[in-house]
Simulated assay, not measured.
Amino acid sequence: MAAIDVVTGDITRVDADVIVNAANSSLLGGGGVDGAIHRGGGPAILAECRLLRETTLPSGLETGAAVATTAGALPARWVIHTVGPVFSDRDDRSELLAACYRRSLRLADALGARSIAFPLISGGAYGWPLDDAVHQQVRAVKDSNCAVELVTLVAFSPDVADRTRRALI
């Protein structure tokens, strides 16, 4: 199992081989983490995302799937884009949320990455309750069997970082 670190801050400044983008299905940028990664990485990320849309992903990226691009001007080598599910009181979408983490880790392995940084997927605009989003994140990362040596969980606030550290115990 990889070592797991928890930090509070801006994922675009984390020193890791891979930064995970909580993307929207269009892959063409958006708000929150997605917008920050596209702004920080510059036009190279958007160019690769457009190419993916023109070739292998004409309908966009499915929820729970993951795809890699360059990281452009970011300190990472790659960005792995994954689309988290929107929370629903009626449907249990927790498997899709866990798949975001598992598939991102598998893709990082395939790329030969030694370190990866994750935001809290679906824990913002997609409305996932914070405690459960943290639980799903920690469980998926702990349960994954990968060669990545360091997983950094990047919390957007000290409160979320504290919740994440408690969930790791």
Rank of each mutant, 00 (worst) to 15 (best):
M1P: 15
A3N: 14
A3L: 10
I4G: 05
D5L: 13
D5G: 04
D5Q: 15
V6K: 00
V6A: 04
V6M: 03
G9M: 02
T12Q: 01
R13L: 09
D17E: 12
D17M: 13
V18D: 01
V18L: 08
I19D: 06
I19L: 15
V20R: 04
N21T: 02
A22D: 02
A22H: 02
A23E: 05
A23K: 07
S25A: 11
L27F: 13
L27E: 13
G29I: 14
G31N: 02
G31Q: 08
G31R: 01
G31A: 13
G31K: 05
G32Y: 01
G32M: 09
G35I: 09
I37K: 14
G40C: 05
G42P: 09
A44P: 04
A44Y: 11
A44H: 13
A47L: 10
E48W: 13
E48L: 12
L51F: 11
L51A: 15
R53V: 15
E54H: 12
P58Q: 14
G60E: 09
L61T: 14
E62S: 15
T69E: 10
T69K: 14
T70D: 08
G72C: 11
A73M: 11
P75D: 13
A76F: 00
R77K: 15
W78Q: 04
W78S: 06
V79F: 04
I80R: 05
H81A: 12
T82A: 08
V83R: 09
G84I: 04
P85S: 08
F87P: 04
R90T: 14
R90F: 13
S94Q: 12
L97P: 09
A99S: 15
A99R: 14
Y101H: 05
Y101V: 06
R102D: 00
R103D: 01
R103C: 00
R103M: 01
S104T: 06
S104F: 02
L105R: 02
R106Y: 01
L107E: 01
L111P: 06
L111H: 01
G112S: 11
G112K: 08
A113W: 04
S115H: 15
A117S: 02
F118L: 03
P119R: 05
P119S: 08
L120Y: 00
I121V: 12
I121S: 04
S122H: 07
S122P: 06
Y126T: 03
G127F: 11
G127I: 07
G127T: 06
P129L: 09
P129R: 08
D132P: 00
A133V: 00
H135K: 14
H135N: 10
Q136T: 09
Q136K: 06
Q137N: 10
A140W: 04
A140Q: 00
V141K: 05
D143L: 11
V148P: 02
L150S: 13
V151P: 01
V151N: 01
V154P: 04
V154I: 10
A155T: 03
F156T: 09
S157T: 12
A161F: 11
A161W: 07
D162A: 15
R163W: 04
R166F: 01
R166Y: 01
L168G: 00
I169A: 11
